[in-house]
Amino acid sequence: MSVQLAQRERHWVGRSAVHWRRFRLLLIGGCLVGLVVLSAIFADVISPYSPYDIDVAIKLQPPNRAHWLGTDEFGRDVLSRVIHAARISVKVAAVAVSVGLIGGGVIGIAAGYFGGPVDMVLMRFMELLFSFPAILLAIVLMAVLGTSILNAMTAIGIIFIPGFSRLARAATQDVLRQQYIEAAHTIGMSDVRILTREILPNIITPLFVEAMAAFAYAVLLESSLSFLGLGAQPPEPSWGNMLNTGRGFMDQAPWLGVVPGMAMLIGVLGFNLLGDGLRDVFDPRLREAA
């Protein structure tokens, strides 16, 4: 009796530990993402100064009571700029991931469900896109489309399409083999209905987790493009172009590079942790296994 009880106790403890580990990921990720997203939404309210106000008299000041994260080479408040930059990062990432998720999702599901020549043509095209290094493809697309933040969103979105399409295709094929698809046919469901009602809910979780990881990657890509001068254009602040500026002042004013770098770290880490945490919470099968 006592042995049984002890075993149950240990089991319970083990279970809650697993829960806590999962929950902790979600919690930390959620906090970091919350910080970034809230900064983006309420940038105008919470930033102490305008990100554009130039005051050469106070340029390159180290962090102090008036300017918590110092000032840049034009005397602009770094804290205000890094907060406003979050807005661009989140906006670009959100649009780019949506483009990738919807485009790649539709292509992948169609390829997986219909198979045959449809699959062949779509997937060869995806492989063509996949064969270019991401940043190179982005630069080529930006060169074709022109330099603007809207084009940066499109370019990053297109980069995401092959990855999402492969994932969606593999997940669709996996679900298609299941008997409940056959059962759906036996009650007279049409292809479209099977796709939306039976397949989509089963593949949405991996796609969603991938979207969170892509979110992190999109933040990085946008920063890279801005760093190269292809994304957000000055004076508009972006973590990438702030980092580029900071590079030139690394010995005189290290906070100019460290601050946007830290912001990127928080954003990328946050979205990654949130993606992992959400996967554990959303998947009813994983939930049961715990």
Binding site: Y180, E182, A184, R197, R285
Partner: peptide, 8 residues
């Protein structure tokens, strides 16, 4: 078991 959709 396999004829029921696990997520619905």
């Amino acid at each position: 078991m396999s004829a029921l959709n696990p997520v619905l």
